[in-house]
């Protein structure tokens, strides 16, 4: 599905910091992969590269066999909008848009008519049991509810790949468990999921784990 070939990412913040070094990683269809590492280890950088939000300093990112470096910004954005769903630790909901409008956003960028966006967003919100919160603003929701909105937003485009950056990091254990249950259910439905975490208890649930420290990847098979 997505492949990193010898990817290095360097940030130039005064002196060059290597966030990722010579990383090679293949994520296949319907995989459920956990990326584990301490903060500052480069795991978010890895996720953004997988999500086509960032471009590597060196190396190649192949999405379904296509070299993403050859795509224009518009093509890349369209690919991101259609094929990839993001879920973030801090939810990243647009604060002045209602729940429904937040969920509609990716459909807007696909150029869907307003009524079609409404219908699809409504259906997706109902799936995460937030129909009664449709017109609320994110600030009026609890953390767990916000993350469910974010998940609805990630799923509304029916993406092939879901990238989650510590989705349970800001939640209590009860809400966290609920969110994880949703992800496992999605995996069961055939979605490809890559999730960042630093919580070992969660990590145990992944069939495949990639450890990262100081920008270097280590594959690890957990029993």
């Amino acid at each position: 599905m997505i492949k990193l070939l010898d990817v290095t990412k360097t940030y130039f913040l005064g002196t060059g910091v290597r966030a990722l070094q010579n990383a090679t990683l293949t994520i296949s269809r319907n995989e459920y992969v956990g990326i584990l590492g301490p903060s500052g280890s480069g795991k978010s950088t890895l996720l953004y590269l997988l999500g086509l939000l960032d471009t590597p300093t060196q190396g190649q990112v192949l999405f379904e066999g296509r070299d993403t470096a050859l795509l224009t910004d518009t093509e890349l954005s369209a690919l991101r909008g259609r094929s990839i769903g993001f879920v973030f630790q801090t939810y990243h909901l647009v604060s002045h848009l209602s729940v429904r409008e937040n969920v509609e956003l990716p459909l807007y960028y696909q150029g869907l008519e307003p009524w079609e966006r409404h219908d699809r967003a409504r259906a997706q919100i109902e799936k995460v049991n937030l129909a009664h919160r449709m017109k609320h603003l994110p600030a009026e929701l609890s953390g767990g509810e916000r993350q469910r909105v974010a998940i609805a937003r990630a799923l509304v485009t029916e993406p092939k790949l879901i990238l989650a950056d510590e989705p349970t990091g800001n939640l209590d254990s009860k809400n966290g468990a609920e969110i994880l249950a949703i992800f496992e259910q999605l995996h069961g439905q055939g979605k490809t999921i890559v999730m960042i975490t630093h919580d070992l208890a969660i990590a145990r649930r992944f069939p495949r784990i990639v450890r990262i420290s100081d920008g270097v990847l280590h594959e690890e098979a957990l029993a």
Binding site: G51, L53, D73, T74, L76, S77, A78, R80, G81, R82, F86, H92, L93, V94, S95, L105, P106, Y109, Q110, R153, T157
Partner: peptide
């Protein structure tokens, strides 16, 4: 700024 990032992640191009 955050909103710009969110929108880009959700498929907005530079032009959008």
């Amino acid at each position: 700024i955050e909103e710009i990032g969110i929108r880009r992640a959700l498929g907005a191009s530079r032009r959008d």
